[in-house]
Design a protein around this nucleic acid. Structure first.
Lengths: 359, 359
DNA sequence: GTGAAAGCGCTAACAT
DNA sequence: ATGTTAGCGCTTTCAC
């Protein structure tokens, strides 16, 4: 209280509002949070005074005074569009249910633990992590909910996309178009990548479609490089094809392959460019499929057939799990699966077996 | 003090560390901040005990107790690679000088003021905003430093890229390759966009290069759509060219134009795709130039000639301005300019005047 | 060089 | 339905 009147720069607090409205601080606190214990007329008056005085809520004070604030941390890689979509949905859900979220961008830090630590400093107890890295298990704070295909965190709930569903739709789509043999440009190696690969292969197999994997990655650059490599490789094989079964020279550079499925849209865009540059038309010569339904992939520039992960539903699942954990119910670890769906655009078309590439 | 021993879940505080180390809380506070007032031996002991007990710093407490914490807010659109680059650099600088930064992702919220409000709730007084929208000037908190080409905020310092520099290098580069007439795929309309356009035109003019603007945008989709529109338009003009001066049918769909400069790399990528699909080769038929030196543009898929904004230098300028403002020195508004540089890759080559497009 | 104590803004238990 | 009051964890004078 040393210098209350020193300058006009002092922060307006609830005390000031209380004095102005002629009520106590606790009434102000409740009134500003729409608590039903405060009569509408007082709420109204408090709110008006708060506005008039230019009162600003101070999160630090609130966090400090609560032992279990309704606070949710989110760690995402904001350079990935899909992550942003998830977080937007989570933020939307949170704002509707009195939760406050603090989002950290994992793409900002070299050390994957940094984002978690920043959240820990704000006393965030519940963290939703999207495609988290492998953390040291001795981290001071760990995600309570993970959005990914799999996780190595024993204590975290998991929300995963049921790729099976979308891929099944995809398989039948491809089958109907006459595709019998496809390439798969795979993502970064790891547990989740391997699982995806096996699942894809088995589902396609059910529709009697052969699948051959080729290592790529999750970026446009990676998709481009991988597709170029693949084309070169196939071209070479085609030229001395006597030893090869499924890449006979006579059906062109891609062999029997009439479609290419990619790990994600970014990868597919890279592949698209490599194909285009090689004079191979999409979808006339070869069909192309992505994953994640990104904005760029949806643009007429690519118009990718892709698989949508229903970000809203994923967010709903993750949010409700996070809330459940905070409430203390839900002691056992849960795994929730959200369906995915095929989005057909113009990068897939009738299979063309008579393709020939003038490299 | 109602239930100190209730469960092991209570947060470890400085008080606990103080007790364990046999010193007072204030000594702990100073020791953990390497204050020279605390003897090395005590610092050492405090640090060890803190570690042993699993002490975690609580930002809320610190913020609440300080009137002017060393806190810097950053508002950026993390879906734009360039913004992420800026913020990474700012974070790096901050961690080296005792500043704490809190980064908000403007791309998460529909209302542009939301990001600022979240920072305000944490008492962040100094905010660096990257390409901020036009805020209502009655916002409770406004950026103190803006990274952009221009700003309408009267109280904010401005850090701008000296596009002049990079563009001058570009003009001479294009001139040497024989380009005399280029198209400019412009970005979103606005103050900053108009300024860029005029500057480009005048600098190119100095090298005796004509420039024609064409509205596009800052995304891949926008670049693609704009380029397609342009091609269609030129094609139509070419067919009844008697009224046209600079798009004579005889030199092909692009008229005299031998190069296309784009608002940013994203836009250039879209244009690239439209050209490729129209059977126009880059750079054999037409040269293409981007802006911002993005990772995707650098990939072999595009290999864009582009202009680098030297994010490190921009960040240094912004950070030091923000610090200066916080220290209270620096009452007048400053504008700092950071040079840019041309990065030559393989999307630019010798001008080809004999292009012909088989649309 | 170190300790004691006040207080930052807010919430929640309890009292009225 | 509203007021009183005790902290939440930390920093910061000011004593010693």
């Amino acid at each position: 209280m040393a210098e209350k009147t020193k300058a006009g720069c002092r922060q307006v607090t609830m005390k000031d509002v209380a004095r102005a409205a002629g009520v106590s601080v606790s009434s102000v606190s409740l009134a500003l949070r729409n608590d039903s214990r405060i009569s509408p007329s007082v709420q109204e008056r408090v709110r008006r005074e708060a506005n008039r005085l230019g009162y600003r809520f101070n999160l630090s004070g609130a966090l400090l005074s609560q032992s279990r604030p309704k606070l949710l941390g989110v760690v995402a890689h904001f350079d990935q569009e899909l992550h942003t979509a998830y977080v937007r949905e989570i933020a939307d859900l949170a704002s509707g249910s009195g939760y406050r979220i603090i989002a950290e961008n994992a793409a900002l830090y070299d050390d994957p633990a940094t984002a978690l630590e920043k959240l820990a400093q704000l006393r965030v107890a519940n963290v939703i992590a999207i495609n988290p890295p492998v953390y040291n298990t001795d981290e001071d704070i760990l995600p309570t909910v993970v959005i990914a295909q799999d996780t190595d965190l024993p204590q975290a709930d998991l929300v995963r996309s049921d790729n099976m569903q979308g891929v099944t739709e995809l398989a039948s789509h491809l089958r109907q178009l006459g595709h019998r043999c496809v390439y798969y440009l795979a993502g970064p190696q790891g547990v989740s990548g391997d699982a995806r690969l096996e699942m894809l292969a088995s589902v396609l197999k059910r529709e009697d479609i052969e699948m051959y994997p080729w290592q790529a990655g999750n970026t446009l650059s990676a998709g481009f490089a991988a597709m170029q490599d693949l084309l070169v490789r196939l071209w070479q094989r085609g030229r001395n094809a006597e030893a090869e079964n499924f890449f006979p020279a006579r059906v062109g550079a891609l062999g029997k392959t009439t479609a290419i499925v990619c790990y994600n849209d970014q990868c597919a865009m890279g592949a698209y460019l490599a194909l285009l540059k090689a004079g191979i038309d999409v979808p006339a010569d070869v069909s192309l499929v992505g994953f994640d339904n990104s904005a760029a992939g949806a643009s007429p520039a690519f118009s990718l057939t892709t698989i949508d992960r229903c970000p809203r539903k994923v967010a709903e699942a993750a949010f409700s799990l996070a809330c459940a954990r905070r409430e203390g119910r839900e002691t056992e670890i849960r795994r929730v699966t959200v369906p995915t769906h095929l989005v057909v655009r113009s990068s897939t078309a009738q299979a063309n077996f008579l393709r020939r590439v003038g490299k």
